[in-house]
């Protein structure tokens, strides 16, 4: 299986990449890890005339704690770099666990977190947990830089608010009070499988009292979504099992899944109920201490 012909340009700065993407228009695509773009080109799903490689932009490969901003993850960090980051393991282990359940080792060594977001595939694993943690993404172009709440980034399957000349440069998890968080991916295999249902939960617990909670669902709607009714039910309440079951039902009602070869809509909806309850229990137990 060979790749069709295309032009290749290795950008040496974000500004150069933005300028190229602006002048070449929609027939140019960004190449980062390439684990999504190259298979799509081989299968003739897409046929870009130019690939603008950003892999040499070393400034987008760090994970750091920035005063007043929070944890900043460079868009070119690979899934394995996210998984092994000691800073993330200390602050948000749930993000590392999410990376660990993605694809397989070979793909995790080249696929990037920025690519996982910008592809805007509904079943992508990073978006639900990052949305639950209130993350923003920085979109940079030569006309400036803007910060977008990840929750508002997606507009449909493979569609987002990113403009042709913009590059997603970093993901920021702001300073927040969440003391428990988790992502549960339900896939048909332990490895190398897309999520049939993905549920992420972040909570602020004070003893049994749920001060705040966010629930994000992946693979069960055209974009990742928040289960706001379920969140509202739990916020400010003392948590018990009946409440968690009810929250699961509300989250299932908020989902709009499709039927495909991985599962029927009915099955997915019921799994949202089950995994929302389980995720809530796990995040709450973490935050309880």
């Amino acid at each position: 299986m060979y790749l069709p012909d295309f032009d290749y340009i290795a950008a040496t700065s974000v500004a150069e990449a933005s300028r190229l993407l602006a002048s070449l228009g929609p027939e140019a695509k960004i190449l980062a890890g390439g684990t999504d773009v190259l298979p799509m080109m081989k299968q003739e799903t897409i046929a870009p005339k130019t690939l603008v490689s950003i892999t040499r932009l070393d400034g987008l490969k760090a994970i750091s704690l920035e005063e007043g901003r929070g944890v900043v993850i460079g868009a070119l960090c690979t899934h394995n770099e996210v998984m092994k980051s000691s800073l993330l393991q200390e602050k948000y282990l749930s993000v590392c666990e999410t990376a660990h359940r993605m694809a397989n080792n070979q793909i995790r060594n080249i696929g990037t977190i920025g690519g996982n977001i910008t592809n805007a595939v509904p079943s992508a694993d990073f978006p639900p947990i990052l949305i639950a943690l209130g993350a923003t993404v920085t979109l940079q172009s030569n006309s400036g830089s803007r910060s977008v709440l990840l929750e508002d980034f997606f507009t449909g399957p493979r569609q987002s608010v990113i403009r042709q000349d913009e590059i997603l440069t970093e993901i920021v998890i702001p300073v927040n009070g969440f003391n428990g968080s988790t992502y549960h991916k339900f896939g048909l295999r332990r490895s190398g499988a897309l999520a049939v249902v993905g549920v992420a939960v972040a909570v602020v617990m004070e003893g049994d009292l749920c001060k705040d909670v966010r629930i994000a669902l992946g693979a069960v709607a055209p974009t990742p979504i928040r289960a706001r009714e379920a969140e509202a039910l739990l916020r400010g309440k003392e948590i018990n099992d009946a409440l968690l079951e009810e929250a699961g039902k509300l989250a299932a009602a908020a989902s709009k899944p499709i039927s495909d070869m991985r599962g029927s809509a009915e099955y997915r909806r019921d799994m949202v109920r089950v995994f929302t309850r389980r995720c809530l229990r796990k995040a709450i137990d973490q935050g309880h201490v």
Partner: peptide
């Protein structure tokens, strides 16, 4: 690091 050489230009 192990990678798939069919996905690397």
């Amino acid at each position: 690091k192990p990678v798939n050489s069919c996905l690397v230009l």
